[in-house]
Design a binder for these strands. Structure first.
Length: 412
DNA sequence: ATAGGGTTAG
């Protein structure tokens, strides 16, 4: 079924008019979370309920074949942390409301537009449900719009727009806890966010939403990372202790910790430099009958590297292959960085070559690390020759093009 | 078939 001719010519100038649009309260309100939802009724199918697609109105249009133009892509990127997620969401929403239409085409018919900087507006019959909101909130966190995400969450609860479920709590928890892992500058703000995370846990309790393994793991991971921003004082490992408490609690509630739980805990200890404790957990997994995976190896390898115990790291690294699996790109990058930091450029070169011959493709991390290694060995040898010279060019090109891509994305 | 958890640099 083709698109109606009326619609094919529809561009942003002539798009269908809203079936209803709900305006936003004060335009100039200072509040940071503001959304506008606008429901459009397809003019060729007035019997349809308005249905939802998230888009930036002014950038939405279609070409002659009915395909959305590039500009809609901006929108996906804006809302979700991958392009796939919002797309899935739209598909789902579209399908639910437009059963009469061919699935793929339905996706293109934009009825529900969404723009930031306006108040959230939900009306009965607009099919935004908990899953859609979860996707949205996750997208906001991914965009680092932490306040927006939290405000949206609060708004949903306060105004009873949407009853949060355990998944929503997990997203918010995780979003709050995870941030700051790399951004130490905002430490104070982050701590406040941690408080918010703990409040949410209490809220869950009150509402009788039972945490499951994923929720628990989010909490444990958050607690484990929390201590990073605390001053180095007696409270140093307090939060990991809390995490251990949470773990005990989950066992009592009949939720068995899995490899992800233990990985989060191990990472927590590694971040505090207590790699030996992490190692004990790792070794104890065998007795518990829990398979260690590449994540757990990588966490521990990083822990050893951080303590400059590169030999221990190397040993674990080799164990991966001995166990019959392959080191992944993260494992390679971690060990390369570790070798670089102790100045073992020769070993690093060898590992790098092994990585290439194993068919593992270097990514931006590997290239940056390799450049560091090259610079260091140049200092030692006075020149860069052969294999390294070639890799130097490859690496530089890769990094440059990655920078360009990043710029392009930021412009969007 | 819808949404959620652990690892790598600066």
């Amino acid at each position: 079924m083709g698109l109606p001719s009326f619609f094919i010519n529809t561009t942003l100038k002539g798009r269908p008019s809203p079936a209803f649009s709900v305006s936003a309260g004060e335009e100039d309100s200072k509040m940071s979370w503001k959304w506008r939802f606008e429901a459009l009724r397809p003019p060729w199918a007035p019997q349809l309920k308005p249905f939802a697609l998230i888009s930036k109105t002014e950038e939405m249009y279609w070409d002659r074949n009915g395909k959305p133009k590039k500009s809609t892509k901006k929108l996906y990127a804006k809302l979700g942390h991958t392009e796939i997620q919002p797309l899935k969401m739209m598909r789902r929403i579209s399908l639910r409301n437009c059963n009469d239409y061919d699935k793929d085409e339905t996706l293109l018919w934009c009825p529900f537009s969404f723009s930031t900087n306006a108040e959230i507006y939900l009306k009965n019959g607009i099919p935004f449900d908990v899953v859609a909101f979860n996707t949205l909130i996750k997208g906001l966190f991914a965009e680092n719009k932490v306040e927006d995400a939290v405000e949206l969450f609060k708004k949903l609860v306060r105004d009873k727009i949407c009853e949060p479920n355990e998944v929503m709590y997990a997203i918010v928890m995780n979003g709050l806890c995870k941030r700051g892992h790399t951004q130490k500058t905002l430490s104070l703000l982050r701590l406040m966010e941690q408080d918010a995370a703990i409040n949410i846990l209490n809220e869950m309790k009150q509402k009788d939403v039972l945490p499951n393994i994923v929720t628990y793991n989010s909490i444990i991971d958050g607690l484990c990372k929390l201590g990073q921003w605390e001053k180095m004082d007696y409270a140093k490992e307090g939060k990991v202790k809390d995490a251990e408490e949470v773990m005990k609690h989950m066992v009592e509630k009949g939720v068995e910790p899995n490899i992800i739980t233990y990985s989060a805990l191990m990472d927590g200890y590694c971040l505090r430099g207590q790699v030996n404790r992490a190692r004990r957990i790792f070794d104890s997994l065998r007795e518990k009958g829990i398979e260690t995976d590449i994540f757990s190896y990588n966490i521990l390898i990083k822990g050893y590297c951080k303590k400059k115990k590169v030999d221990d790291a190397m040993q674990l690294f080799c164990e991966i292959s001995q166990k019959g699996s392959k080191p992944d790109i993260v494992a390679y990058n971690t060990i390369l960085q570790g070798l670089f930091e102790v100045g073992r450029t020769g070993d690093a070169k060898q590992i790098y070559a092994e990585m290439l011959s194993a068919g593992t493709k270097p990514n931006i991390y590997s290239h940056v690390t390799l450049l560091n290694i090259i610079m260091l060995s140049q200092k030692e040898d006075g020149c860069v020759a052969g294999f390294l010279e070639e890799r130097l060019n490859v690496g530089l090109n890769f990094i440059l093009s990655a920078k360009v891509d990043q710029k392009r994305r930021l412009q969007v």
